[in-house]
Amino acid sequence: ISWSLICIWILALLIILLITQLRNIFWYSGAFFCSCYIFTLFVLMTGQDTASYSWYQARLFETISTLFLIFVLFCDVFTLYRQSNTKYLNSYQNSIRDPLTRLYNRSYFYDSFTALLPAIASGHPVSVIVSDLDHFKRINDKYGHLQGDKVIQFVSKVLQDSVRQNDIAARIGGEEFALLLVNTSPEVAQSVAERIRLAISQHDTESSLNQLPEPITISMGVFTAIDLSISVEECVRRADEAMYRAKSAGRNRVVVWE
């Protein structure tokens, strides 16, 4: 019986070695497990009876191999869980972010605005800033769409660096962006928009590290929601209307909806 068991374990070890070629730690643990049992059976065959010292040695190797295999299985399960969780997080982030700028996308912007309605009801105003690059079509026509993408990415970086961590910066159109400023009054929102406008207009090709082929400007509209009498869509529409007023007034300016 012992020799039969040894042959079976050797066969199992050979199959693992030939088929898996020990591609990862799981198969290493399987080969180690088989080797330990083969060694255990040889140790048992050298003993005179089950109460001999050899029997305790065999049990020790058997226990060590079993615990090692259990440990490896737990490590594999944890690794698979971590990889699965990472893939889920990456997939979720890709679903809510714009692929070019890594700002949030339009749907996430509206979902976040809707989630802030309880805060507005509690007396914490939420300001919306809608902005649009001035004469961006000329950039695409003159320098090409690849350069246009670099301009979009540069502006997105300025917007992201200009807001707090709990604020939302989103790309809601081709060259149109929106900011959602939590617990922000109209005066503060106007100040933030003005700071962004100046930061963008003051850059040129050299200071932007060749991301801007020429100086650009941006027009921005601001609206602040202070109660629930106005819907989310209407808030964004009013900020958008204020932005178009800024364009009509000569561009490169901030207009607060009144």
Rank of each mutant, 00 (worst) to 15 (best):
I19E: 02
T20Q: 03
T20L: 03
Q21L: 09
Q21K: 12
Q21P: 06
L22D: 13
L22Q: 11
L22H: 09
R23I: 10
R23L: 10
N24A: 11
N24F: 09
N24W: 08
I25D: 15
I25S: 15
F26W: 15
F26N: 15
W27S: 13
W27G: 10
W27R: 06
Y28K: 08
S29P: 13
S29E: 08
S29T: 08
A31G: 15
F33N: 03
C34W: 05
C34K: 06
S35F: 02
C36Q: 04
Y37A: 01
Y37V: 02
Y37H: 09
Y37N: 03
I38T: 13
T40Q: 03
L41C: 05
F42K: 10
F42Y: 12
V43M: 00
V43E: 00
V43L: 01
M45C: 08
M45V: 05
T46S: 12
G47I: 07
G47Q: 05
G47S: 09
G47P: 06
Q48C: 09
T50Q: 02
A51Q: 08
A51H: 10
A51V: 04
S52Q: 01
Y53D: 05
Y56M: 00
Y56N: 01
Q57M: 06
A58G: 14
A58F: 00
A58L: 02
A58C: 10
R59C: 00
R59T: 01
L60K: 05
L60P: 04
F61C: 00
E62K: 01
S65C: 12
T66M: 00
L67V: 01
L67F: 02
F68K: 02
F68Q: 06
I70E: 06
F71Y: 10
F71T: 11
F71H: 08
V72S: 13
V72C: 13
C75E: 11
D76P: 06
V77Y: 14
V77Q: 14
F78C: 11
T79H: 14
T79S: 14
L80Q: 08
L80K: 07
R82P: 08
Q83Y: 15
Q83I: 15
S84R: 12
S84Q: 14
S84F: 12
N85W: 12
T86D: 14
K87T: 14
Y88K: 05
Y88T: 08
L89E: 13
S91L: 10
Y92I: 13
Q93L: 05
N94A: 07
N94G: 05
S95F: 01
I96D: 01
I96E: 01
R97N: 00
R97W: 00
P99H: 00
L100S: 00
R102P: 01
L103C: 04
Y104T: 00
Y104H: 02
R106P: 01
S107E: 06
Y108R: 03
Y108Q: 03
F109H: 02
F109Y: 05
D111Q: 15
S112H: 09
F113I: 11
F113Q: 09
T114A: 14
L117W: 11
A119M: 11
A119Q: 10
S122C: 10
S122H: 11
G123C: 08
H124L: 12
H124Q: 12
P125D: 08
P125E: 09
V126N: 11
V126A: 13
V126H: 11
S127R: 07
V128D: 07
I129R: 03
I129L: 06
V130K: 06
S131I: 07
S131D: 10
D132A: 03
L133Y: 07
L133R: 06
L133H: 07
D134E: 03
H135N: 07
F136W: 06
